[in-house]
Amino acid sequence: MTALLTVDRLSIATQARQLVRNLSFSIAPGERLGLIGESGSGKSLTSLALIGLLPETMAATGSIRLDGTEVIGAGERQLVALRGPAAATIFQEPLTALDPLMRVGRQVGEVVRRRLRHEGLPSSAPAVQTRVLELLSRVALPDPERLARVYPHEMSGGQRQRVAIAMALAWRPKLLVADEPTTALDVTTQAEILALIGQLVREDNMALLFISHDIPVVAGTVDRVAVLRQGELVEAGPVSDVLQAPADPYTRSLVAAARTFDTALGRLF
């Protein structure tokens, strides 16, 4: 079986500091992997490196093969071709992930049109509009025709994140990278977004790389987890194994912390 994404001994460093060290993992088509770690452990950097979007001050070494293409050292043209069809990303902060001066429908439409052109399909305005409305209703936005005409600041945070998900889905990517997609949302909305991502990934049979610091959030969404600490992989395996019988002391402390928190909440209510 060939993996969709293989990361082999990935290291990311600035001139002064080593940020990610010897990270290796792989994702098979349709598989869902969770990348867990505290703030600053290199999770988001890894997700940027996957699609060749590290800031120019950082250098990546090792190997990242995404859908058969080596990402590290690839030229911008190759990377542009890869972004979208191979991997799409949902970001943490839905407010800044949308252009404030562009109506929502047009933003999604930009991506849709690019895909239609890429696949040689007609990309007339009505064709694009139809797909945009389809996508907006797929992410369970109420009244897509009205919402397509509003600006991002006129929507709620949850709705914006749904739009961001619609934009990521527009490419029908093989791998969906979700970089803490629920951190900026309140708990109720968080649950809805998680359910939505889970459902969409299953429906389209996409692979999912789910990045989070929140163990309970990850546990319900993915098959396998990898735990990062200060840029190093400390433990990886199926969700149930890692969370029920953590082998590494760091994972154990993370799980214990999550449990204490849950118990505390349980006592309160």
Binding site: L53, V80, R83, T96, E110, V111, R114, A164
Partner: peptide
């Protein structure tokens, strides 16, 4: 430096189209 530029790049936008679609209007 905004996320929507990264998002546009992730979605496969080239630099010229980013300038026309996002930078100039903003």
């Amino acid at each position: 430096s905004m996320d929507y530029i990264v998002a546009a790049r992730v979605a496969g936008s080239s630099w010229p189209s980013i300038v026309v679609v996002h930078v100039l209007p903003n």
